[in-house]
Write a protein that binds this DNA or RNA. Structure first.
Length: 596
DNA sequence: ATAAGTACGTA
DNA sequence: CGTACGTACTTATT
């Protein structure tokens, strides 16, 4: 098999793979021909730290650490607090190159080697325990005779010997080298994107380690306001729940037995007071607020019920640790456009609960959110010089409005409609103005839409593949093809036109949303790297918003570096400073103090 | 047990 | 003014 010497172009920095098996043993292998190191992960960490902390221009100072996936291989070194600056995450590079989310090592390996991914073997118990299998890799290797990576390698229950673990590390190096050359063929931006995505994946492991600082007393108080006091036992919980329900049910005498959690029964209750609705969703009920007192009562009940169930005492107990940190799992990209995701409410905490997110003693938050990021990203992706000129304003809708000769509000609706919406409706005239003023940007949106309709994949600005073949479960839920006045055929409930336009909207949105996610991650990675020496921790990433937990004495310096990081990362990401990006940055003690 | 449907929180 | 995500509860299906 390959010795995985560095096959990149001259000047490619050295790489070293660090991989960890579930047994706790790790291998550290560099591509300079040095002797591999194998042993318990904990004993290898000092060596990894030396590489991670090395500075300067010498070879070791620029070494990029390679692993299959940060969640697995970087766990121990993140737990140890090792500040890795440069890494290559094979899984994230694979997701960038090929789209989708499945990036198991065997899949990334096959794709990197040009082997059809459909032929990747399933991991079975036989791969792990049946040593007589003729199709398995030979002893001390991880590649099978058919060229596939052993699908059992890296899976649960895998117990490699040291030679196999070294082979596993060498395979990661080989994969990274192949991926880099494939990304380079897409353009230099794609290699930079892989670096940035890899840093984001590492940041995700750190986010899961550090958690979001919580003021537990305030959290308890806010929950109590919505869900009532903490129940003493199960019977108490039922009583409190009944009392919460009674506030709604007493508005409709004779219907006290309605189950408010059953939408069908709620519909019946509403019908009894003369409100006939197709469903009981919030926006359907909203117009009936003044029709009957039960409607506002029900809507208030729903908000309280949401906090009581999803963000109640159970949530607090399960996810906020004894150190008052809210923790959840993080992923560096979703399976569609590439935004970060988080679990346990970190990405959808109701605004009412945000006062409970508070810096710990001696610390503050530096909060920064990107202003109007999506139209600014459109200016970069499309390369529209006129639209880029508009981004130089702090409020880009102002120059757009001036150019179109309309009010700012009209210009804003038109831009948003062009980026997200159907190209029709109220903003029609302003949309025509956009076409004339910014033809390059509008053309990009139209082209993306058309590619989506044709099921053709596209790439974000940084090169992430947006696939339109295997996906779009959500298109069935979207738009629904209703409004069919005539009695349609008994089958074909949704027209193909509805599916086509759903794909078109998805594609148009994904290229903007996904490119914005790339810029965001580049920014976050830069903030992480440049504020570490201040004792700063990124504790939340929310699509266009960063929350950094900082020792109070370094608040101003950290703010300045967050702003600086945006200028630098935007210039690197966009390849120029033609398009301006702006952040609203403030120093606060509670997340709720953020102005909006 | 698992899946689908409904509902709603965030950007 | 679209897209994406995660979570919980109910109902239907295996």
């Amino acid at each position: 098999m390959s010795t995985a010497s560095n096959p990149g172009p001259p000047g490619t920095p050295p790489r070293a793979a660090f991989v960890v098996a579930a047994t706790g043993r790790a291998a550290f292998v560099d591509d300079s021909g040095a002797e591999p190191v194998v042993g318990p992960a904990s004993t290898l960490l000092p060596r990894v730290r030396a590489v991670a902390e090395a500075t300067g221009d010498d070879a070791t100072g620029r070494t990029r650490l390679v692993w299959w996936a940060a969640t697995v291989d970087a766990r121990d070194l993140v737990a140890d607090g090792i500040p890795v600056a440069r890494c290559w995450d094979v899984a994230e590079a694979h997701r960038l190159l090929h789209g989708g989310w499945d990036a198991r090592p065997a899949v990334a390996w096959a794709a990197a080697h040009g082997i059809p991914v459909e032929t990747v073997p399933e991991a079975t118990r036989g791969d792990l325990f049946d040593f007589s299998a003729t199709d398995g890799p030979p002893p001390g290797a991880v590649v099978r005779p058919d060229g596939h990576l052993d699908p059992g390698a890296g899976a649960a229950g895998w117990e490699p010997d040291d030679a196999t673990l070294v082979a596993w590390a060498r395979a990661a190096l080989e994969c990274a080298a192949l991926q880099e050359s494939q990304l380079r063929a897409l353009g230099p931006r794609a290699v930079a994107a892989a670096h940035s995505e890899s840093a984001a994946a590492l940041l995700c492991v750190e986010l899961a380690r550090d958690g979001l600082p919580i003021d537990r007393a305030v959290a308890e108080d806010l929950i109590a306001r919505a869900a009532g006091p903490r129940p003493a036992d199960h019977a108490d919980a039922l009583r409190i729940r009944r009392e919460r329900d009674q506030v709604v049910l007493r508005e409709v005498p004779g219907r006290e037995s309605t189950d408010l959690r059953n939408p069908g029964q709620v519909r019946g209750l509403l019908a009894a007071v003369g409100i006939d609705v197709p469903n009981t969703r919030k926006w359907v009920l909203e117009p009936f607020r003044d029709t009957h007192r039960v409607v506002p009562a029900l809507l208030e009940w729903r908000k309280a019920e949401r906090i009581a169930t999803t963000y109640g005492y159970g949530w607090l107990d399960a996810h906020v640790g004894p150190d008052d940190r809210l923790r959840g799992g993080w992923t560096a990209c979703d399976g569609a456009a590439g935004r970060m995701t988080a679990q346990n409410g970190l990405h959808n905490l109701p605004i009412e609960l945000r006062p409970a997110v508070a810096a710990h003693p001696g610390h503050v938050f530096v909060r920064a959110d990107l202003g109007q990021i999506e139209p600014r990203v459109l200016a970069v992706v499309s390369g529209d010089p006129a639209f880029a000129a508009a981004t130089r304003a702090a409020d880009l809708y102002a120059p757009v409005a001036e150019r179109l000769g309309v009010e700012r509000a009209v210009a804003k609706v038109a831009v948003l409609a062009a980026m997200y919406g159907q190209r029709s409706g109220a903003a029609g005239e302003a949309l025509k103005g956009l076409e004339r003023a910014y033809p390059v940007a509008m053309r990009l949106l139209d082209d993306a839409y058309a590619a989506g309709v044709r099921r053709e994949p596209l790439r974000t600005f940084g090169g992430r593949l947006i696939r339109l073949d295997a996906m779009l479960v959500s298109e069935a839920a979207g738009s629904g093809a209703d409004g069919s006045a005539g009695a349609g055929g008994s089958e074909a409930p949704a027209s193909t036109a509805a599916y086509d336009s759903a794909r078109g909207r998805f594609a148009r949105n994904a290229i903007i949303q996904g490119s914005a996610a790339e810029l965001f991650k580049a920014w976050a990675a830069t903030v992480r790297a440049t504020t570490r020496d201040l004792g700063a921790q990124i504790v939340l990433c929310l699509h266009d918003e960063l929350l950094v937990h900082v020792p109070a004495e370094h608040a101003e310096e950290a703010s300045a570096r967050v702003e600086r990081a945006l200028v630098d990362s935007a210039r690197r990401w966009a390849g120029s400073s033609q398009v301006r990006f702006v952040a609203d940055t403030s120093v606060i003690e509670r997340w709720s103090q953020a102005k909006d």
